[in-house]
């Protein structure tokens, strides 16, 4: 079965500027894929290509098995843009309009709209959606994206304007959607959010995809361990080669953060010198560390092979 969303060498130029450079990436069924990158990386361009707002300069892709821009397949997609905007009218009117434009009819539509608005705390929202706060507009956009019970959700910065309770609500909605087998393509700058809910990530910079894979593999693979010792002073002869790696010294406990290849030597030498080993913990990297490191690589021109 074809992936719900697949970019096949998608390329987009705006004049001489390359916004997206041969992006090949697939979102699998029932997964949440986080699409990361600094401003101007090409994330929104990729989303706009998938939805047919832009035409690729080269390459292309499929969405629910149909070429990008196919009108009928959009009835099975939910989309939330980074800054949703609305016609004059109520929240329920906006959600019902989205449903009708996706071929839904009453009474199913009215029921669905009502339940989504309740879930997103918008039941008692004011009369004109244009005058909602940004957070409310974002929640309303989420209700519009979910109204047609889509197979694929494409979300551009879905939590950027939400307060912490709003973020939790959206997180729960997305997890529930994934558990129902829906696929979610999620572009965000909010790295903690991505860490919480994404199964895989793809990192884009200057239009090129630099990394992609399971989130857990990136976070676990820091290549460093924290070794905590006790019973020997930091000035001990045995620690001379490791002084660079000493990160903290409190109450007789010495914390070393060393590359994996040095951990065995450090542990053995500590024991030999009469010290005690308190703990050895593999260090988990944060997405923020990775984001900064990958952006730096791209700046320095060290772009790895895809």
């Amino acid at each position: 079965m074809a992936a719900p969303l697949e970019f096949q060498g998608a390329t987009k130029h705006f004049g001489s500027q390359v916004a997206l450079d041969h992006l090949s990436l697939a979102v699998e069924r029932g997964e949440i894929l986080g699409f990361l990158g600094p401003n101007g990386a090409g994330k929104t361009t990729a989303i706009h290509l998938a939805l047919g707002f832009l035409r690729p300069t080269a390459g292309g892709g499929t969405i629910l098995g149909r070429p990008f821009g196919d009108t009928a397949s959009r009835a099975r997609i939910g989309f939330l843009p980074d800054s949703p905007t609305y016609f004059a009218g109520t929240a329920s009117g906006a959600v019902e309009l989205a449903g009708r434009l996706n071929d839904m009819g009453n009474p199913q539509l009215r029921e669905r709209a009502k339940s989504l608005l309740a879930q997103l705390n918008l039941s008692s929202a004011g009369k004109d959606a244009r005058r909602f706060s940004r957070g409310m507009q974002q929640r309303l956009g989420m209700a519009q994206a979910l109204v047609n019970d889509p197979e694929l959700l494409i979300l551009d910065e879905p939590t950027s304007a939400l307060d912490p309770p709003g973020v939790l609500e959206v997180r729960e909605l997305l997890r529930a959607a994934r558990d129902e087998g829906k696929s979610i393509f999620f572009s965000s700058h909010q790295l903690s959010e991505v860490e919480h809910i994404c199964d895989r990530i793809a990192f884009l910079d200057k239009g090129r995809m630099l990394r992609h894979g399971p989130l857990a593999s990136f976070l676990e693979d820091s290549g460093r361990v924290e070794v905590v010792t006790q019973g020997l002073p930091a000035s001990a002869e045995v620690f001379q080669p490791y002084r660079l790696y000493l990160s903290e010294s409190t109450d007789g406990f010495l914390h070393f953060v060393v590359p994996v290849k040095l951990q065995r030597a450090l542990i053995e030498q500590t024991w030999t010198a009469g010290g005690e080993l308190v703990s050895v913990s593999p260090l988990r990297r944060t997405l923020e560390d990775l984001f900064v490191a990958w952006s730096g690589e791209a700046r320095d021109g060290e772009v790895p092979d895809k």
Partner: peptide, 9 residues
């Protein structure tokens, strides 16, 4: 984009 993201040609 709120309109053309739906099933509207």
């Amino acid at each position: 984009i709120m309109v053309l993201a739906r099933s509207v040609s």
